[in-house]
């Protein structure tokens, strides 16, 4: 019994410790991100890695999401004879929910895991210590560029996702099912308001921050992991943790923002 209580106490201390560390980490990176000087070359480099090189995946994912969405909605709406709502249904679902969430998940898989394992390896090979010893601030040199790049890239990728998704929907609705093109787009004009776009934008901005925060903190603090993380095994374990944690928190925060903004 006492052993059990001990365990519970121990793990809740561990949880609180980690939560506190993550929060302090975020505050520190944000504080440095908001003050110049910036190293724009490094920010651009990261935008290239996190943003530009995710474009193709996002385009493919967006296209098929839009297509399957139109297919499913068509199948449902045709029973009620209201296929004219198809355009607005696709656009709203994309802008409000699917584009921000799916983009975030794709970015976590592609860039988040890379951010975490890169920082983890740098930590375990003493490269971060080396930076400090060269009087180069690792927060400024490594983390701020990643943060800025992620917060800039994710909303851009999300809007790309939305556009190609609506295009995919158009292909299925108009080209495959012969719906009138006017009906598809007219519905969109009438139902999508600025508030929907704000909501999608807010989500993608918050998700961008969330992704870079969780994955980079996990890698950066590899040496402070509770059960001792070291070398290849440690990096892979921490990266898995980071991807899972980031994905789950994106989904939870998605619900929160929806509930607050609807």
């Amino acid at each position: 019994m006492i052993r059990l209580l001990n365990r519970i106490g121990d793990s809740s201390f561990g949880f609180l410790e980690q939560a506190g560390r993550l929060l302090l980490f975020l505050i520190r990176v944000l504080a440095k991100a908001l003050r110049p000087p910036y190293c724009w070359r490094r920010v651009l480099h990261q935008i290239h890695f996190i943003g530009a090189r995710s474009t193709l995946v996002i385009l493919v994912a967006g296209l098929f999401t839009g297509m399957v969405l139109a297919l499913q909605f068509y199948d449902t709406l045709v029973r009620f004879g209201s296929t004219s709502l198809l355009g607005s249904a696709v656009a709203l679902a994309m802008i409000r929910e699917l584009a921000p969430v799916l983009t975030a998940l794709v970015v976590i898989g592609r860039a988040g895991s890379a951010i975490c394992s890169e920082l983890g390896i740098m930590r375990s090979e003493e490269q971060i210590d080396a930076l400090e010893c060269m009087a180069i601030d690792p927060y400024r040199y490594l983390l701020v560029p990643k943060l800025l790049a992620c917060v800039i890239s994710v909303p851009l990728l999300t809007s790309l996702f939305i556009m190609i998704g609506i295009g995919g929907g158009w292909f299925v609705a108009v080209v495959l099912f012969g719906l009138s093109e006017a009906a598809y787009f007219q519905g969109m004009y009438e139902t999508v308001v600025m508030h929907d776009i704000y909501m999608g934008f807010t989500k993608s901005l918050v998700f961008g921050l969330l992704i870079v925060w969780i994955t980079s903190a996990k890698g950066f603090f590899l040496h402070l992991e509770r059960c001792g993380a070291y070398g290849a095994e440690g990096v892979s374990r921490v990266t898995t943790d980071a991807v899972v944690a980031a994905s789950i928190s994106v989904l939870c925060v998605d619900y929160l923002i929806s509930a607050l903004m609807l």
Partner: peptide, 8 residues
């Protein structure tokens, strides 16, 4: 500072 494995 020179690290054990170079830390390049």
């Amino acid at each position: 500072v020179a690290f054990q494995n170079g830390a390049l």
